[in-house]
C-alpha cells in the first residue's frame, strides 16, 4: 500500500530537516486519497527533525506564508493548494523566501 513522492526543502529551509534537502517520502494512503493537507501532516511527523521547528514550516494548519510551494515545478496556487490530490512520483518543492538576499 502507499506510494512515493519527493519532497525538497530549499532556500535555507533544510535547517528543519538536518540539512537534508531532498527526501523521498512514502505516503501510507491510496493514490487518489491523499491531498497536500495530508502531505503537510506527514512532513511534520516524519521529516522535521525537531518538533520545535514545526512552526517554521506551518502556521494555522497550512504552509507558513513566505514559503513558496511548487508542485512539479508549478506554483501550488495553480494546482489547488492544500486540496491538490497527490500522485505517485510528484515532486513538492518548499522554498523559504524569508531571509535576506
Amino acid at each position: 500500500m502507499g506510494f512515493k513522492v519527493k519532497v525538497e526543502f530549499l532556500g535555507g529551509l533544510d535547517v528543519i530537516s538536518n540539512k537534508v534537502r531532498e527526501h523521498s517520502l512514502k505516503v501510507p494512503l491510496e493514490e487518489g486519497e491523499a491531498t497536500v493537507k495530508d502531505l503537510i501532516e506527514l512532513i511534520t511527523k516524519s521529516i522535521i527533525a525537531d518538533p520545535k521547528d514545526i512552526p517554521v514550516f506551518i502556521e494555522d494548519d497550512t504552509v507558513r506564508p513566505g514559503i513558496l510551494v511548487l508542485i512539479n515545478d508549478t506554483d501550488w496556487e495553480l494546482e489547488g493548494m492544500e486540496e491538490y490530490v497527490l500522485e505517485s512520483g510528484d515532486v513538492f518543492t518548499f522554498t523559504s523566501t524569508l531571509h535576506g538576499g
Partner: peptide, 30 residues
Amino acid sequence: IVLYAHYKKLDYFSTECTYAPEAFRGTARE
C-alpha cells in the same frame, strides 16, 4: 525573484546570517 532563480537554475546561497535579524524587522516581515 525566487521563482526566476529557481527556474533559471541560478547558483545562489541561502542561509540565514548567524546573527539573526533584529526582532522588530522579523516581526514586521511576518
